[in-house]
Design a protein around this nucleic acid. Structure first.
Lengths: 214, 214
DNA sequence: ATATTGTATTTTGTATACAAAATACAATAT
DNA sequence: ATATTGTATTTTGTATACAAAATACAATAT
């Protein structure tokens, strides 16, 4: 037990750091898929009470990372093949629309930021997979964020699940996807909304089709 | 105050009825946009404590109906013009994809259910606006639900905001939209995925453009 | 008259107590 | 040996207490 109410001044509420820690624990596998979250246990582990923990868990439930069964408890979510495909279909719709919006907006700084994600790999003969994976994640979340459409960003919580599902790797090699990324950026730069949406969608679709041999 | 723990056996938790009641209160205007939710007040009004109320409020926050400002409180959300447009853009992406999926699925019962929404109005010379509004809401939520894509349904919480925003009416007259609805259904029936997505999108887009003269 | 400060009141965020439900597991019956 | 019942233990859902932060508002200074 610790002295009440006189520590922790770095944040507005402890729910937030709890939320972040739990998310980290889920994504890096400290908490395993299907595992039950016994509230008292996790609360003690994190040195907090159940109230802010519950708040964090509800937020994670909304992001599809935690599943609650009433009166039974909260569980780390696991995804079967159908759910993963369904999530990729959502991504296809969301990212496609994002690419369209960016193409319509015609903002040079947007194009620059997207290019910056991949410039380190452009003339490199060996691409470090871990670095590229990070860049890829960055690119996809940036694509949504840069639209400035807050609701669109809010419904794009699938990015997290993505790299959890495929186990910290890539579905397809950088040689293949790097070019697709540039095609998306190019279409945005050209202000070709239809093309931007089309290639953004195909990019996601190809990965989905390769995840399982659909 | 009421006797503890021995009433209310019709549901697994009281958060749920609280959630439903609050949602109703927000949508029918009992709670006004921008209004602060003083937890103790609402909890007393509903005859519950702050704990399950908070749970309900967090769920509503995730649906964009409530906005939380840390340490300040929870407020009924209000939407400015940009947000409403952004929400319609999301709907365009989601409903467009839903129509595509249904067209690909080629399920006759799906088509029938969609037709059933509007069959009462087909040969009628006078359409009751309230009845038609209900049918319209039903159609749009059904379009998503029938895909069987749970994540897609989860991110489609904008339907609520829709009729809140426009004040329980319709943006465009039934004469205009009824035909569009049938066009969407027809494309789904024909299994024409591209056409289905296209007309579903145009349908939303037209309404968006009419909401404000964009 | 307006701005500033200080105090009282309200409200939030968190911890905790406790009843009811769920679960574990031993004792008993088949 | 397996199934069933009953009891003990664990865990959840809810209410509530209390500190700290936010707010309201009166008293004082400019």
């Amino acid at each position: 037990m610790y002295t009440k109410y006189n520590i922790m001044i770095e944040h507005t509420s402890i729910s937030e750091p709890i939320y972040l820690r739990l998310k980290e624990m889920i994504l890096n596998g400290e908490l395993k898929q299907g595992e039950k979250i016994v509230q008292e246990k996790i609360a003690e582990l994190l040195g907090v009470s159940r109230t802010p923990l519950m708040k964090a868990l509800l937020a994670l439930e909304n992001e599809y990372l935690v599943k609650s069964i009433p009166r039974r408890g909260m569980y780390i979510r696991s995804w079967d093949q159908k759910e993963i495909i369904d999530i990729y279909v959502c991504r296809e719709a969301i990212e496609g629309m994002a690419a369209r919006l960016l193409a319509q907006a015609g903002d040079k700084t947007v194009v620059q930021q997207l290019k910056d994600c991949f410039s380190p790999f452009q003339n490199s003969d060996h691409i470090d997979i871990d670095v590229y994976t990070k860049a890829d994640e960055k690119f996809h979340s940036l694509l949504i964020k840069l639209t400035g459409n807050e609701p669109l960003d809010k419904i794009y919580f699938f990015g997290n699940i993505h790299d959890k599902v495929i186990g910290h790797g890539l579905i397809r090699p950088p040689e293949e996807t790097l070019d697709e990324h540039f095609k998306i950026i190019k279409a945005i730069e050209n202000g070709d909304a239809n093309e931007a949406e089309k290639v953004a969608r195909e990019h996601i679709k190809k990965s989905r089709e390769l995840l399982f041999d659909t």
